[in-house]
Design a protein around this nucleic acid. Structure first.
Length: 202
DNA sequence: CACGGGATCGTCT
DNA sequence: GACGATCCCGTGT
């Protein structure tokens, strides 16, 4: 299956790419073990004019500098001291857009993902939520900045040609960004309708 | 099921 | 020194 390429990630409409990623497959390969599944929930962040984005007003720090690279690299950071949240950088170099992948439906390497999570059963909590999804996939912030498009990359996204209908995609305000003032109402959270692995609202 | 709080540490002020 | 693009568990109903 083909990996999504730089031409996909370099598009400028971050909300559109966010929606287009639904139904694609996010996969990792560590120590020969492939794990991953179908993307069911995403969130768009559009620096520099988005107050919810870490790169608001082009703020460039050691943490955020990878967001300024060309589309198709990983932006991974530690949240609340515990969770490693996985984002995909989009747009051309110098334009800090990113998409947070919030949930996948587990498909490949399910037992390995259960081991990483310490869970004996498959439940929505296995991969439904940005922190637990990264943990299930074996992703941590050591991988921030890596390419998702090179053939040897251990993290990538595949298009398995499983298109979604317009009716299957819903959107709403993003989660956990109360500080973002007027931007917090922007409907840039996207999810697949009725999918049990979409994270719970809070 | 709803709610509240604790965990835990890198990052920026 | 404060706080966060979260999660999990305990309590009460």
């Amino acid at each position: 299956m083909p990996r999504l390429s730089t031409s996909f990630y370099e598009q400028t409409d971050v909300a559109g790419i966010s929606k287009a990623l639904l139904g694609k497959y996010l996969l990792t390969s560590f120590n020969g073990m492939i794990t991953g599944g179908r993307i069911v929930e995403t969130e768009a962040y559009r620096g520099p004019d988005d107050k919810a984005c870490h790169a608001y007003q082009n703020r460039c720090t050691r943490r955020t500098q990878v967001m300024f690279e060309t589309g198709g690299v990983a932006y991974i950071y530690l949240c609340y001291g515990i969770h490693h949240l996985f984002n995909i950088v989009t747009a051309e170099a110098g334009m800090p857009h990113a998409i947070l992948i919030r949930a996948i439906e587990p498909v490949l390497g399910i037992e390995a993902m259960q081991d990483r999570r310490g869970m004996s059963k498959v439940s929505p909590q296995l991969t439904g939520g940005p922190g637990v999804m990264s943990k299930a996939l074996g992703i941590d912030k050591a991988y921030t900045g890596i390419s998702l498009t090179e053939p040897e990359s251990p993290i990538w996204v595949e298009d398995r040609r499983e298109p979604l209908t317009k009716e299957a995609i819903l959107s709403g305000p993003r989660i956990g960004i109360d500080y973002a003032e007027e931007c917090k109402e922007w409907p840039w959270l996207f999810w697949i309708k009725d999918n049990p692995f979409v994270s719970k609202r809070r």
